[in-house]
Each structure stands twice: as C-alpha cells, then as structure tokens.
Design a protein around this nucleic acid. Structure first.
Length: 449
RNA sequence: CGGGGCGUAGCGCAGCCUGGUAGCGCAUCUGCUUUGGGAGCAGAGGGUCGCAGGUUCGAAUCCUGCCGCCCCGACCA
C-alpha cells in the first residue's frame, strides 16, 4: 500500500481528551475518530488491526468447534420481556421505538435472541451440543465512557453461546472455550491470565475473566506469579478430547479479581509468588445453566424421553477493546509496537527521497518482492521530510521498518529497524526483501502455533 | 449518578478576572531555500468565540438556562 493513496490522518499533537497511551496513539495515528462520547469511527489503519483480531478470534472459535452466524444489532423488546431483562437491565440498554411505536433496543448482548433461534429448531438431545457465535457491534449506554475504545459505548464483541443437554456436557463446552481463549489471546501476542470472576448480572457459578496485565487496567487482580508465561494449548490440541487437564493446570493456581478475592486461599500462595496488579478484562466466559432456557422454554428431550431445559453458557471477547489493550501492553513513547499477527502492516518502507530515480526504483522493487512473498507493506512514497516520515512510521508501530535513502543506497544498502527493540542495522539491497519476508513469516508461524 | 473541569480556526492553546468587535503555535495554500528524526524565510486563506436568552451604547469576556466533551468516584466487555 502506497501511503500517498492511503488515508492516514496522523496528528502531531495529542488531542486534549485522550489520557492513556492507547487512546492517545489511536487518535494520533489516525486509527479512530470519536463521533460522540464512547462512539468511534474506525479509520483504515485502525480497521486493519480490528480485522486481524477478528480473524484470529474466528479461527480459534472454529478450531474449538463453534459455528458462526450473525444476529442483528437491533432487537425487539418482546424477547427481553420473556427473560425479564427488559425491565431488569436499566438505563445501560439503549431503547428505541420504531415508527409503529414498537419497543426495540440496540442489543447490549444476545442471550435472548440466540435462545429464541435455537429453541425453534433444536428439540432433541441428539442435536446437541451446539456452540454458535457471532462478531457484532453492541451498545451499552455506559454512565461514563472513557479510555477511548477500551470502554466505549458502542463496541465490537465476539459472543459465543453453548447449548447442551446436561450440566456435564455444558462443562465440556466451557472447557473448549477456556482453552480456545488461552490460544486466542496468545496468538495476538498478549499475556493473559484467566482469573476467577464474579458472575455478575448474568449469573452462574463457573466463570472466568481473561485479563491482560497492564498498568492502566481497571480491574484489580490477585494472582500467583507462576501463571505468567505458562505455555498455552498448542495448535494440535484436540478440542473434542479431554480438556480437564488443561483447565486444572491453569485454575489450580490462585488468580482472582478483587470481587471474589479469598484472603485465606491467597495466604497459602508462597509470598514471593503473590502478585497484586491491574488488568484489562478482554474476555469473560460463563456457564449459567438454565437461566435463559428455563424462562424462555428452550427445551430438548433427553435419552429418557424427558423434556429438560438446555444447559447454556456464553463466552465474550471484547474485539474492539483488544485494540486498546494491545497498545497498553505494547508501546513506547513514540507509539504502539504491534505484535506481528495484529499489525496493520508487517513492514513500513520509507523512501527518503521520493522522486529520486535510484531510491524510487529500489523501493518499488522491495515493495513488489515483499508483497509477492505475502508480506503487507506500507510504503511511504510521499515527498515529506525525513524526520516526519520516521516519526510517523514509529507512530504506526509496524514491526519492521526499511529505510531507503541515497546515503545507504550508495553502498548498496538499506537500513532496517526493528520497531520493538529499536535496533538498527544495514542490509544488502538485494537481500533485504527476502530477509524481512522470512522474519515476518517466522514470527507469524511462531504466534500461530 | 455524586464531585471537579473544559467548550475560542483542522489540532494544541492564550485572551475572560478588569466589556471596546479575536490572537499564538502546529497544520493547510503560494514562492524561495533546505533535505537521514515532525525544517527556515516571506506571504496567504481559514473562526456563528458550543447554543439560546438577558444586562449594556457595546459581550469571547458579566448573568441565567440548555447542550456537548473530559477527569476522579460508584458501575460495567
């Protein structure tokens, strides 16, 4: 992609409303633009990150056996009256009336709707288990939106719903999502920890939050240090097999939010392993039994011919929030430092003298070679000044930078900078593209394992 | 929803206390110079001073109401 054709409205100065790093950089790098409190337009650079996160989430959901569908953003109030949540939900729910004065709402979540969908066609235990998910915009009219996309009112969320004929089977579904989440976040280059959580208004007893450890987190987390850096289930994991081992491996070590903090259990953690820190909640999984299936009469006949309420669970990932969380976890004073798997582009190519025959030619060759190798390149072909180009590329946070200028080109070399470490070195012009393409590929493979 | 703060050019801000018809930096446009870390000089364009009332000869400035946005707390993916 040529920068001259792209839409990248970067800001040199930080808009006054942005406090934390992720919000500042997302505005400055032209990733998003606020349209109202907690409501953002996603500009091309930000959208590319959002799409990459979505793709990883989707791949891991499919791996775990979930099937994608898409439910609408607008829902009829009648479904929510069935579950009793139309009155219970409160002002967080955005209520709308259509032209016929019918009560509608902008969905804050989809338990009722998916239950309605499934109950109409699933009648037998033989049709279960089922895990269905979608990735859709939600709206919660937060009292106080803040931190940019980390706590917006409109947000993109992946939500999965599991349906089983028995509590034992529901637990198996829960474990699939538990393992899938460990993989999902790690593939994005995020260190997350599953912590015991408060089940909140959704209810249920088996529930975990997945939190990214970051200073600007909004949850207080108490955890055993041994959880950090723990290997996650690899790509070969059999999701139809027994996942109890993985589950107990992670949950036998202490980790809890402040709401469920247990001082007694905490005191048994060796003192040098006790960590108390802040985290950003990026995923939350619940097994809540028949909370919705019972009032909404979503039932199947079991093997004994008896009608039973389906056992359900729901499993959310804050997709848009993850963009902010990723920046909080990976940045320096100049901008984000994207992990390869979610970077908007893999490589930033800078032509220090656009219009110069030699640098133009060298850049065009590198760009073509990288793209032929499947590497995504943002090529700064503008006539802007060098300093501006460097600063802007750092702000974009692409993992690799290749700088082509007359000085290096005279020696047949281009400069390579690793954005994460800041290390620079020179590469032979004719080897640069291959070298970088192989680094990109290696890193992508590593993260996808 | 309690407490605090802010709305003046695309962005960051000054001016308001003490009323006299709007300014600085960045960005944008033109020209020349410059060319490896957000350039220099010269010139130019761009503003219903959040909105509505009020006070006054005169309001960005004082008063009242409303709207929007931000921060702290409580709440939440």
């Amino acid at each position: 992609m040529r920068l001259s054709r792209f839409y990248l409205p970067t800001l040199k100065e930080t808009p006054g409303e942005a406090q934390i790093a992720s919000h500042r950089f997302m505005l400055r790098a032209g990733m998003v633009r606020q349209q109202a409190a907690g409501i953002y337009a996603w500009l091309p650079l930000g959208l590319r990150v959002l799409k990459k996160i979505e793709r990883i989430v989707r791949e891991e959901q499919e791996r775990a056996g979930a099937i994608e569908l898409l439910m609408p953003t607008i829902q009829p109030a009648s479904l929510w009256e069935e579950s009793g949540r139309f009155d219970a939900y409160g002002p967080e729910m955005l209520r709308i009336k259509d032209r016929h004065d019918r009560d509608m709402l902008f969905g804050p979540t989809n338990e009722e709707m998916i239950t309605d969908i499934v109950r109409s066609s699933i009648k037998s235990y033989k049709q279960l288990p089922k895990m269905l998910y979608h990735i859709q915009w939600k709206f919660r009219d937060e009292l106080r939106p803040r931190f940019g996309v980390m706590r917006g009112r409109e947000f993109l969320m992946k939500d999965t719903y599991s349906f089983d004929a028995s509590p034992d089977d529901a637990r198996k579904s829960y474990l699939k999502m538990f393992a899938a989440y460990l993989r999902t976040f790690r593939r994005m280059g995020l260190e997350t920890v599953p912590v015991k959580a408060d089940s909140g208004p959704i209810g249920g007893d088996l529930t975990h939050e997945f939190v990214v450890l970051a200073e600007n987190g909004e949850s207080d987390v108490f955890m055993d240090k041994a959880l950090i850096g723990k290997p996650v289930p690899d790509a070969g994991t059999d999701f139809d097999g027994d996942l109890e081992g993985i589950f107990s491996d992670w949950t036998s070590l202490y980790a809890g939010t402040d709401e469920v903090h247990d001082e007694e259990a905490w005191s048994k953690v060796p003192e040098d392993r006790r960590l108390s820190l802040r985290g950003i909640e990026v995923g939350h999984i619940f097994c809540f039994g028949t909370k919705y299936s019972a009032p909404m009469r979503a039932r199947v006949q079991n093997a004994e011919g008896k009608e039973v309420d389906m056992e359900m669970g729901s499993y959310g990932i804050g997709v848009s929030r993850l963009v902010g969380a990723l920046i909080e976890a990976h940045h320096d004073e100049d901008g984000p430092k994207w992990p390869m798997s979610v970077a908007p582009f893999h490589v930033g190519l800078i032509n220090l003298r656009a219009g110069d025959e030699a640098t133009d030619k060298a850049c065009a060759e590198i760009e073509a070679a990288l793209e032929a190798a499947g590497v995504e390149v943002l090529y700064d072909d503008t006539a802007d000044r060098a300093g501006e180009k460097f600063a802007r590329m750092d702000l974009c946070g692409l993992p690799h930078q290749l700088v082509v200028g007359p000085r290096g080109l005279g020696q047949g070399e281009v400069e390579w900078k690793d954005r994460a470490t800041g290390e620079k070195s020179n590469l032979k012009l004719d080897e640069a593209a291959n070298r970088i393409a192989s680094l990109v590929k290696t890193e992508l493979d590593r993260l996808a394992q």
